[in-house]
């Protein structure tokens, strides 16, 4: 399976390089986990240990779940992310199909527009979105969290590229079999693009679960807060400068994502490597 066979020296070197890189990436997480199980006095000590001298993990995590509506934040996160992804699929799949497989005037111009939209950072659109939501009287609601994201240029682009690799003859065969465009999308395009849809799902889930900027702008009520915003509220209201519980809260909100990634890792990597559809 390995493309290159390395000697023992090479293997050791590779291991060292990978470990150092991994250490850089993982150190903040380890620090976070370490702080989340320490007492406040120990956190402020001059010397640092990964493992605590006195274990305060239960206390810290109890504070998180007792004094802040952490479950509520997590539930909000699940709800909002799931809604965003579902609506994104509803919008992006037909768009991508049309751009990849239908012939109509202005198709290439529209696709260029999607590519340009890909380059615009979401923050640029925040004021227009805010004003629109204000007039729709949706500020400080779930709607405000979901509606601005229903069109994803990245999703359209990714799915369109994947759909383009599905041979035209297959779609023509489907037409002769009597499928409508909706049937073709449902029975042919979606099942064949499962890997692409999965990788788009991971992208969408990660970016909206971790998003702090937009919920911070449109939400006032704490009970609607998503996990990332919840952390902020938690810090302000409950803990002041207590890093232990704060890190416990942080660990709580990243855990579902990491867990999801570990479970779907195989699938995710497949999604990025599968090209052949024949």
């Amino acid at each position: 399976m390995t493309p290159l066979s390395l000697g023992t020296k090479g293997k050791v070197l590779r291991c060292v390089i990978l470990s150092v890189t991994a250490l850089f990436a993982l150190l903040p997480f380890m620090w976070m986990l370490s702080l989340s199980i320490k007492t406040t006095p120990e956190i402020y000590q001059a010397h640092f240990h990964i493992l605590p001298e006195s274990f305060a993990g239960f206390d810290n995590y109890r504070v998180v779940f007792a004094s802040a509506p952490m479950l509520r934040f997590l539930l909000n996160g699940v709800l909002v992310c799931a809604a965003i992804f579902m609506v994104q699929l509803l919008v992006c799949i037909p768009c991508a199909y049309a751009l990849a497989k239908l012939r109509f005037r202005g198709r290439d111009t529209l696709f260029s527009a999607v590519l340009i939209a890909l380059l615009i950072p979401p923050q640029v659109l925040s004021i227009p979105h805010f004003v629109l939501l204000y007039y729709a009287q949706l500020i400080d609601s779930y709607g405000a969290l979901i509606l601005p994201w229903i069109f994803s240029a990245f999703g359209v682009f990714l799915l369109r590229q994947f759909f383009s690799t599905i041979p035209d003859e297959l779609i023509q065969a489907a037409q002769l079999d009597g499928m409508s465009e909706a049937d073709i999308i449902w029975r042919v395009m979606i099942p064949m693009s499962a890997p692409a849809i999965a990788s788009f799902g991971i992208f969408s889930l990660v970016s909206h679960w971790n998003d702090l900027f937009w919920p911070l702008i449109v939400l006032r009520r704490a009970e609607l807060a998503t996990p990332a915003l919840g952390i902020l509220l938690f810090r302000d209201d409950e803990t002041g400068r207590q890093f232990g519980p704060l890190m416990a809260a942080t660990a709580t909100i990243v855990a579902p994502l990491i867990l999801a990634f570990l479970l779907a890792q195989r699938r995710f990597i497949d999604g990025l490597t599968i090209h052949s559809v024949k």
Binding site: P167, E169, L170, A173, L176, M179, D183, R187
Partner: peptide, 27 residues
């Protein structure tokens, strides 16, 4: 009309049975 394509154009995600029944299902 029915057509047989050069690349066969079978649905790769469906079994042989599901491929064959598709035109009847649709009709």
């Amino acid at each position: 009309v029915a057509m047989v394509f050069q690349s066969y154009a079978l649905y790769p995600h469906l079994t042989v049975l599901d491929n064959i029944v598709m035109p009847l299902r649709m009709r």
